[in-house]
Structures are given as structure tokens and as C-alpha cells.
Design a protein around this nucleic acid. Sequence first.
DNA 1: AAGTGTGAAAAGTTTCACAGCG
DNA 2: CGCTGTGAAACTTTTCACACTT
Lengths: 209, 209
Amino acid sequence: MSAVDRVDIPKKAIYRLSIYNRCLQRLVENEQKTVSSSALAKAAGVKPSQLRKDLAYFGQFGTRGLGYPVETLATMIRDALGRERLQPVVLVGAGNLGSALLRYQGFQKEGFEVVAAFDVDPEGVKARGIGVPVYSEKELEKRIGEDQVKLAILCVPGNIAQSLANRLTEAGVQGILNFSPVVLEVPADVMVNNVDLALELEHLSFFVR
Amino acid sequence: MSAVDRVDIPKKAIYRLSIYNRCLQRLVENEQKTVSSSALAKAAGVKPSQLRKDLAYFGQFGTRGLGYPVETLATMIRDALGRERLQPVVLVGAGNLGSALLRYQGFQKEGFEVVAAFDVDPEGVKARGIGVPVYSEKELEKRIGEDQVKLAILCVPGNIAQSLANRLTEAGVQGILNFSPVVLEVPADVMVNNVDLALELEHLSFFVR
DNA sequence: AAGTGTGAAAAGTTTCACAGCG
DNA sequence: CGCTGTGAAACTTTTCACACTT
């Protein structure tokens, strides 16, 4: 991406960028023209100084004494996040959780298009309300290659997660959103994001007596 | 919990504790008696030194030259995580994602019991395959109070998430696993864990070109 | 010899404080 | 005056290196 070196920006700052983006969408809808770091930070649940620092990694967008122009800032964030164009995504494992995610509107709402799903038993998937074609996992390589898909959502049982991750990365996938409760081993240039539901509950459990 | 002050242990170390716990379960099944920091660290996807430091927050469990006793270590971690007894959990919002989570076996497998679910339209919930009673959200306060539930999973639309979070905390809930894409405001003694699916995809998107 | 436990260094992240611009 | 942009300080977390124990 542009002039900024993506490498030395804190990972956490990038998560926050998405949050800022969401807050900005609301401001756009309300036709607000500018927003101050303190107002936006409050909406995002962070400190103003942190917001300013986060944005500064990408350049100077604000006007001193005034704040940030809402539209411009939103555009730059979407750009920085690589969301300027629709990213196609595939989903692997349309079981219980997987098929719920297929029906989940949140991805579409944020501009991702789930273009295909794969399952060992594509006939068995309850396709009611799912507008995404479900293929046999055997077609995985073919379809990912054809559509140049770079992102995958993985929701298969733990025991087969690694082997599917291997197939995905070999087919060219560079980012995996992993719902399986296992530690995936992937090439260095592939990014894995783990969403481990039971683990999140356990973490809460620690703080609760 | 025991003698250790929970406050000055890094949050991330606690996440990792859950991962170690899971890896240890596999070792227990294989009847392995001891494990070295390097072996366990590899399974958990961290550095050996980090594993040792994490465990050291809770005491000394290893034997120099030998490693850690699998059973003892597993017990101490479960204890530290507050998992020595079953934690009851409620789920609020049995829509698309919520009802998938009700069917999801992962929570039960890690020893959480979802004791009740709430929805604005309890009749409308497709209860097929769900072994959890679904009540009207009006009964929320009553049932949480009765069962002394401390943990809640929140999967309602963003616009009503805050008001339900308020009701949950007032009813005595101390930990919320929040799937709604909003920043919740809660009292300082309540812990919120956000699982924001679209945000995780966006984060991946940043690193993928 | 193998492998833990731990201070100290390094790296990463957040917060502060204020100069400087509109 | 209000609010951004940013070095420097403070804080947190990770990694290193090695003394020490079995």
C-alpha cells in the first residue's frame, strides 16, 4: 500500500482503524462534516491521544483547531485497510457454526463477499436462507485458483483444520480467519487470525468470581 | 483465587493459559507424565521462555532437568482460570448467530454450561437440536438472579446491545462475551470481551494484497 | 545433561505534554 | 482559542541469557 510501510505500524492500531471506520460511517450518515479526535475517540472507546497517534501512522489528515474531515478520513481508512474494493472470501466447513456465518449479515455489511463455501457433505448443508453456493471440498483448489481468493474463513473440526489450512495456503490464500481451536502452522507470508470462542469465555471466567 | 494477585498478570498470559490447558488435555489423554517447556510451547505456538514466564506467575511447578508434571500443571491451570467448577452462562439474543452458538459444542466441551437463552421472540427460535431453554427477554433479570449467573454471551443487534448489557450487569453479570459490533459501556468491575467477526476479517484484509 | 526459574535487556505500545498551525 | 501532530516518557510485554537444581 501507498507510501507508508505497513510493517512498523502496531497491529493493535490496525484493529482500531476498523473501529474508527465504523464510527465514521455513522457520522457520514448523519452528514457531519468534521470530527475532533476527542469526539471520535470517545465513540471508539479509546483515548484521544491514541486516536491521533494511530491516524498519524498514515499521514496528516486533520486541521488544527478544527478536527478531521469525516469523508476524507473515512476514505483514507478504507484505503489503508485495503477495503477500497470488494474482497472475495471463501468459507470452509459449513457445519453448525459455518452455516450460521454464511447467514450472518455482518460480513456483507462491512463489504466482504463470501463467494463460495466448501464442505465434505455439501448436500447435507441446510442451505435455507444461504445465498452462497456450497461445493464439495474437493473443488476447493480449483475455485480458489479461478477466483484469486485471498481470504478464507475456516470452521472445520480441529482434527482436520491443519490439512485444510495447508490446502488453502497452497491454493493462494493469504489470510485465514480460523474458528477451529487449534494452533495452525502456516508459511510466514500467511496471516492467521484465531477466533476461539471457548477461549474467550475462559478468559472472562478468570476475572469473574 | 489463591495467593497470587490476579491484577499484575498480563492479560495475554491468561489467554495463553487456556491454550496450554488445551494442549495439556491432549497429553493427559496420551498418558504422558511430564512435558518440557519447549515441547508444550511448541504445541501452543509460543516461545519456551514465554511459557515458563507465564507459568511462573502462578508459582513453581516444574522440576529442573525434567519438565512439568502434566496432571499437576493441568490442575493448577484449571484452578487459576476458575474452572475448577462448572460456570453457568446465559446467552442473550438467539438469532442467527446466537442459535448457532447454542448448538455449538465447543463451550460444553471446555466445561461451560449454557443454562438459559433469552430472545425477544422465544417462540420464533428454531429450537431444533438446542438443548437449552429459550425464554422471553423479560425473564432475564429473574433467572439470572435466581441462578447467580456471572457470565453472559451477547449476540443481539447493535442498536439494542447497550441496553441489554445494562440489564445484564444490573442483574449481577460480571463478564460479557459481546458479539455485537458496538463498544459497550459497563461498570469498572465488569469485564467485556469483544468478538467482532467483521473486524477480524478487516484486520486480515490489511495484510493481504 | 537437561531443563526450570528469573533478573535484566529489548521490544512494543500507550500516554503525556506541549509546540505549532489554522 | 481549539485542536492536531509528535517527540519523549511511562508502561507493558516479550525475549534473552544464565545461574541453579535434579
